[in-house]
């Protein structure tokens, strides 16, 4: 239980999709003009991430990984299909988005009309594919962990886009240098928000197993240097 909470908090604050990895920046910049629309898109992203990460996790562990097909036949224990990762993950994401779109349209037309335009856009939001690829890279142990990671990443993205939208609504009243207006200032504000979010990196998450916590800490450091 504690592990799940750790993953959850880590994926929201410390490994925030936007500020630590710059994922989903395109829609983050394009749709953050008003708070209302950004809340809609943020919710849709949380939803889709919460579904696609566990589905891709299952796929990874029962189809793609080396020896993952053993459940089908003993002879398949050396088959390694991991080179098919990208194409399968993106197919899952595209079809999931389509599915979610149809379900929402059928059962909640009001939500559908408010999300309408953004839903299909999510298929090409890099935060979604990014979360699946991180899930694969970090090799989470159970499907529960993967789900929590997906939801946490989504919520982190949601927080980021709502925050920037609120700031952008206010910045209309400030006197920004003309050449910096619009995109430029949004970049710089995101940078500042990112610096603020970096202070979460100091959080030491209490862990049930002490060794794991240090190991995880080292892993975070490694991830940092790798990204850097």
């Amino acid at each position: 239980m504690q592990d799940l909470a750790n993953i959850f908090i880590k994926s929201i604050f410390i490994d925030n999709m936007v500020f630590a990895y710059f994922l989903g920046m395109c829609s983050y910049l394009a749709v953050s003009k008003t708070v209302k629309t950004s809340v809609g898109l943020g919710l849709a992203v949380v939803f889709v991430l919460g579904i696609t990460v566990p589905v891709n996790y299952t796929l990874e562990n029962y189809v793609l990984k080396e020896g993952a097909l053993t459940w089908l036949n003993e002879g398949f224990s050396t088959v390694d299909l991991s080179f098919l990762t990208f194409i399968l993950f993106i197919a899952v994401i595209a079809s999931m988005v389509q599915l979610v779109e149809m379900i929402v349209e059928k059962f909640s037309p009001a939500l559908y009309s408010s999300l309408g335009i953004f839903l299909p856009l999510i298929a090409v939001n890099c935060a979604i594919l990014g979360a699946s690829l991180f899930m694969q890279e970090r090799a989470y142990g159970t499907i529960g962990e993967a789900t929590v990671f997906g939801l946490g990443s989504g919520i982190g993205w949601f927080l980021a886009i709502v925050g920037i939208a609120a700031i952008r609504e206010k910045i209309r009243y400030s006197n920004v240098p003309p050449a910096l207006r619009g995109l430029g200032i949004t970049f710089i504000i995101t940078g500042l928000m990112g610096i603020a979010f970096m202070s979460f990196m100091g959080i030491k998450l209490e862990d049930s197993k002490k060794e794991v916590s240090t190991e995880e800490f080292v892993q975070v450091e490694n991830n940092e240097t790798k990204i850097n």
Binding site: F19, A20, Y21, F22, P177, P178, A179, L180, L183, G184, I185, T186, F187, I188, T190, G191, L192, M193, G194, I195, M198, I227, N228
Partner: peptide
Amino acid sequence: MILPPMALVTCGVYIWIQRM
């Protein structure tokens, strides 16, 4: 400059100069 947020700020400055 190595930290992730500075990528955004550097890019913002690039945009600034380009638009000037």
